[in-house]
Amino acid sequence: MRGGIKTFFAEQRYIGAILPLAIFGLWQASSSFGWVEPVFLPAPAKVVEAFWYMLTRQDLLRDIRASVFIIAQAFFYGALLGIGLGFAAGLSRRVELFFGGTINTLRHIPSVAWIPLVVVWLGLGAPAKIVVLAKSIFIPVFLNTLQAIRGVDHNFIELAQALKLSKWQLICRVIFPAILPVVMVTLRYSAGLSWALVVIAEGISGLEGLGFLIFRAQNLLMTDQLLVCMVLIGLIGYALDRLLYLAQRRLLRWQRGFGGSYA
């Protein structure tokens, strides 16, 4: 590393590290110099200690697994149903009219409001949360898929006609790739929202998972454990988005849009 810190940060790929490092430094400083009471903000070292304790003594991995399992399943079902029904409605006015009103009404009931009822039906376990989260992913995916299909350039439909493509070929060759950019952004967006919702759902009702731990830590005033959960939730959410981002970049490599540098 010639040139020290200045060249280190001049490299674009490290530029994203500046802000987290600064926040971490501030955090460390505030506990070292005693700016904040430890019960409100424990020192970083204490949090790492708590993390190790939770990992080795309290089976933290089980809770992480529980939360990730819920979001993964909910994402799978919600996305599948959203894209599937979105296509059905996008390709047929009849299906759109059949579902449109119902879905547009249901979507105004926030997911959190569904939790109590669904828990009564399905209990405190994972299934209730999967149902609520799948619904929260389904709605934006459905609406955006439908809207994106409505927005496909008519010229391409005409081209498909001229090339005598069947309806199935039209879907695979034209419509699906055309709407994929919108669908991918929606998937990323709703996955992020739903990950947040996992935490709330587990906090409201549940006996395991990161959301359960975070609310328990608050009740017991264990700020160090609370912070461990927060950091983990953030990191897992980030990893989830990265995964989808990489998938998106691979699927949309034909796109050549604005890359971000303009000079």
């Binding site: 010229n155 090339l163 034209v174």
Partner: peptide, 25 residues
């Protein structure tokens, strides 16, 4: 066969695939 005013190639297909689409059936 028809050629339109604008090329109307499908942006998500390579040049080869764009031409191959016409032979799908």
């Amino acid at each position: 066969g028809i050629v339109f005013q604008e090329p109307r190639l499908l942006p998500w297909l390579s040049l080869w695939e764009n031409i191959a689409v016409a032979l799908d059936n």
